[in-house]
Amino acid sequence: MILPVKIKVIVTLIAIGFLAYVSRLILKRRLKEEYAIIWFVSTFILALLSFRSDLLDTVAVLLGVAFAPNLLFAGIIFVGMVYLLHLSVKLSKQQEQTKNLTQEIALLKQAILENKVNSLGPDKIEE
């Protein structure tokens, strides 16, 4: 199952366009490099598989998957789920950090009102 030339050109253009957009996001500092890695890698793999779909067929045969594209979809869904979980963890951490900062602001505003700001360390307990 080798793809015709037309679709190869389209896939290449989409992959290049996507990589260019991700790079642009990084350059404009709207995306951190650590988050971009997964997009670079997955774009590369998908582009590679479009050119060499026989690779996918080989792996499918090795794993005993009857219909090769199913392996691709299962792989993509699995990676996507893991990445979503990773993002949920990041989000929970950020929520906790935001909450702590919010609380510190409220406590500091009160400390300023009470003129205690000099004696108040980050976790100082006045006994």
Binding site: K99, T102, Q103, I105, A106, L107, K109, E126
Partner: peptide, 27 residues
Amino acid sequence: CVALNLPVNLGIGGAVQTGIKYAYRNG
């Protein structure tokens, strides 16, 4: 009373915790 004004809405748990933090840190 002591008025602690949260600049962002935290929900009941975060609000209660803020007050307890105040009480704990102020002895």
